[in-house]
Design a protein around this nucleic acid. Sequence first.
DNA 1: TCCATGTATTTTGTATACAATTTAGATTTT
DNA 2: AAAATCTAAATTGTATACAAAATACATGGA
Lengths: 225, 225
Amino acid sequence: MTNELTLNMNAYLPLRDVVFHTLREAILKGELKPGERLMELQLASKLGVSRTPIREAIRMLEQEGLAVTVPRKGAEVARMTEKDMEDVLLIREALDELAATLACEEMTKEELEELKNTSVEFEEYTKTGEVRCIAEADVRFHDIIYRATRNPKLISILNNLREQLYRYRVEYLKDEKNYPTLIREHNEIIMGIAAKEKEKVKSAMHNHVNNQAAAVKEMIREQSV
Amino acid sequence: MTNELTLNMNAYLPLRDVVFHTLREAILKGELKPGERLMELQLASKLGVSRTPIREAIRMLEQEGLAVTVPRKGAEVARMTEKDMEDVLLIREALDELAATLACEEMTKEELEELKNTSVEFEEYTKTGEVRCIAEADVRFHDIIYRATRNPKLISILNNLREQLYRYRVEYLKDEKNYPTLIREHNEIIMGIAAKEKEKVKSAMHNHVNNQAAAVKEMIREQSV
DNA sequence: TCCATGTATTTTGTATACAATTTAGATTTT
DNA sequence: AAAATCTAAATTGTATACAAAATACATGGA
């Protein structure tokens, strides 16, 4: 934990929620590294709050799978093995297919337009090479599809799965050679939804997630060397 | 909350975990009803602990989807609409198919034997009509399949989904006319796994979950009248 | 040197105190 | 009687105090 953690206090939320979001971001950005201990007193003084909201935030992170606690020893940032990653990717594959199928049924014309625009934005950003923007556009693209499922529970599970992959996904988007594939896949998904051809969308999404899965696994293998 | 809540203190666990399990059970059994408020002081005195572990347990229940809290108003047992149930059932359908497919690849001979035995037990219990035992055998049956996926993350999501349906599922298992279908479906799944025919297992599981889904929805519709 | 033991320190677990907010009820006003 | 306002009680939010356990480290012995 070399970086500074500071609370974004503008919102009038319980501190536990502010702390939760702060720690969550820090974990996803890699500021808090896998295996790093989450010590209550330390975090409390760093964030300028008492231990109470810290503890509650840790309980929430725990249930999200971002932290692991051993009774009487404390919490640490969850470690992820290649196997864990594969496990998550398999689930995501199944649920992203489901999401695509549902979105295909439910998506409005307006949402489809939004999807197309986001896809164009994505393409534009790949030309600039600004990874942060590329990643955000990609998240938006998939969020539009998720939202179109009209299934909040599915959305929350998919967001959680995405979260687990987040750290590696950013690396994946740094690699320029993936861009053409990504763009093509996005377009296939869009065309499938526009034509309301469920099976086509399903297989397009399958490919999309699968390619990403392969790349992420490759990345992990390299890292572990 | 008419029934008594008491803590099962035999294990040497942090109180938050004991409280969490206690409240979770109470919610699943219907002792704590949907919409019922979870007041910290009340629960604390009822369980003989302070507010601290109660609050942490509530944070955990919240992330599991069993409780909903509004800041500064407190927590209540999550309410479930028919739509929520349908949402959960769709996800469960997709993930149970995935689980069946994975189990088909990974299951050992010993586990298959266990599965067969459990299926026989299930059949026996349906003859006695003891719903509690029937339900437990059914849970065991699916747990064996879940475990055979070798995917802990998938297992935990599936357990969570099952949890959401739990209250209604017990009602479903009270209805004798469902038993022959259930037994046949279980056997189809077993045969598929034994022959390692993924597609067959997948569609068998699809039917199985789908029938249950239809019955649960029917049940909700009746209840709401 | 290595291991065992004991002690101080750190850290988590739990209870409680106090503050802030919400809720419910009484009182007043229209 | 209905609506608005005020007050008291209940409830959540946060901080802190104290207890119990784990850890780190020093000391002593084999």
